[in-house]
Design a protein around this nucleic acid. Structure first.
Length: 414
DNA sequence: GAAATTTGACCGAG
DNA sequence: CTCGGTCAAATTTC
């Protein structure tokens, strides 16, 4: 069965268009950076451009990731990228998502015989078929943790469960707008046994709600551009975000993604090449304070984020774009607003954006970006959302240790 | 009082 | 039967 034809071709064209647009925007950004380095207005412009670029990429990724699903293609892409609030804050980031072979997502072919049963289990099946993706967020001591897990969406905790073999309970959250808007997105947050500083967040389903209720920020989206639905695949696809705090000097997000699907390799490769050539903007000062998103071909994807905001750190630092096989990821915050995509043939893409202005994790989201103290090193991943349930760890000082008894779920943490 | 969280019970999958 | 995920009543917080 080959389902690759016209539809795919068209999708590819759209994808190319989106990517081309992104490239063009990147060029503008580059020019802007070259001509207006340092000016405040330039920063805003840069942020704006970056966001636009990210939007284009996201769209492109979406096309790649969800081709077969017309419905999804059409309306489903709710939101992610809107960034409306052009306001002040930072912006940026992205979600890390991995895409895999989409087709199986919505369900593989089944015989009608099962229809009855299907109906019976419709609910559960639906759940099962929901896209899932996992990312790990590492919060190093020192940084506040308030929001490492915040992804800009409003979550409501609906359960907590002790998981066999796990030291810490798993928290279950669903979109606050579920009842009102029927948004089925859910997420699970589990603290790692091995490293209490790491939280594994598994998202399920995409948000279909009109996001942020009333928040400062536009959501950062962690929506997957595409997702794998198999858990088995999930693990490998796990995105790890490590957030660490170096007293005041490091914002680094390192995202490593793997590519698993080789299916669109060629295309992706081409696109990536384009992107790279178009996005290559290097500014000085990237060094320590930059975030890197790298994609590797290994089986494990990891996102490392080191950012800090004294006590407020909003996580979500990741924006990744993955094109099927090649993952393009990243948003990197660097003190100097730099943004670069490094070429690496097989794939490591670095993309950095300076924190200051913000590019937050996911496009356009900017939430509070207050950096009381530092000058630039903080990524504030806002926590904005207060909407989101928060893990309320007693961490005011994270560095101490997480309280073993902490429970996920306090507003503010996510 | 409304909204969010907690927590034991329930349900389906394996 | 066990375990993960969800429900929903009770409780807490704002």
């Amino acid at each position: 069965m080959e389902n690759i034809n016209k539809g795919d071709w068209e999708a590819n064209n759209n994808l190319v268009n989106e990517l081309t647009r992104g490239k063009e925007l990147a060029r503008q950004l580059q020019m802007h950076l070259q001509s207006n380095v340092g000016t405040s207005s330039s920063q805003e412009t840069c942020e704006y451009l970056v966001q636009k670029i990210l939007v284009s990429f996201e769209k492109g990724i979406s096309l790649l990731s969800w081709p077969p699903n017309p419905a999804a293609a059409a309306g489903d892409q709710p939101q992610p990228l809107q960034h409306g609030a052009g306001g002040s804050g930072g912006g940026g980031g992205g979600g890390v998502q991995i895409s895999e072979s989409p087709p199986s997502l919505a369900g593989s072919p089944r015989s009608d015989q099962d229809s009855d049963r299907d109906q019976e289990r419709d609910a559960s099946r639906k759940r099962k078929s929901l896209p899932r993706w996992t990312k790990q967020v590492r919060v190093n001591p020192g940084m506040g943790l308030e929001g490492p897990l915040d992804d800009g969406f409003s979550w409501r905790k609906y359960g907590q469960k002790d998981i066999l073999g796990a030291k810490y309970p798993r928290g279950y959250y669903r979109c606050t707008h579920r009842n009102v808007q029927g948004c089925l997105a859910t997420k699970q947050v589990q603290r790692s046994d091995d490293d209490p500083n790491i939280f594994e967040i598994t998202y399920r389903g995409r948000h279909t709600c009109n996001q942020p209720p009333s928040n400062t920020s536009t959501p950062t989206i962690d929506q997957p551009m595409s997702v794998h639905e198999n858990q088995e695949h999930l693990i490998p696809n796990t995105n790890t975000i490590e957030l660490s705090h170096h007293q005041q000097n490091m914002n680094m997000i390192n995202v490593q993604l793997n590519q698993q699907n080789l299916q669109n390799a060629q295309l992706e490769h081409d696109m990536l090449s384009n992107l790279r050539s178009g996005l290559r903007v290097i500014t000085e000062g990237l060094d320590d304070n930059s975030f890197h998103f790298a994609s590797s071909s290994s089986a494990t994807r990891g996102v490392k984020t080191e950012a800090i905001n004294d006590s407020r750190f909003l996580a979500n630092a990741n924006s990744s774009m993955i094109m099927g096989n090649t993952s393009f990821v990243g948003t990197e915050f660097s003190p100097t607003t730099s943004f670069h995509v490094s070429p690496a043939a097989s794939g490591t893409s670095y993309f950095s954006v300076s924190p200051q202005g913000g590019i937050e994790d996911h496009f356009g989201v900017s939430q509070n970006f207050h950096n009381p103290n530092s000058e630039s090193d903080q990524i504030n991943t806002n926590s904005a959302t207060n909407n989101a349930p928060n893990l309320d760890f007693p961490f005011g000082h994270v560095d101490d240790q997480f309280d073993p008894n902490f429970t996920f779920g306090h507003p503010g943490f996510y």
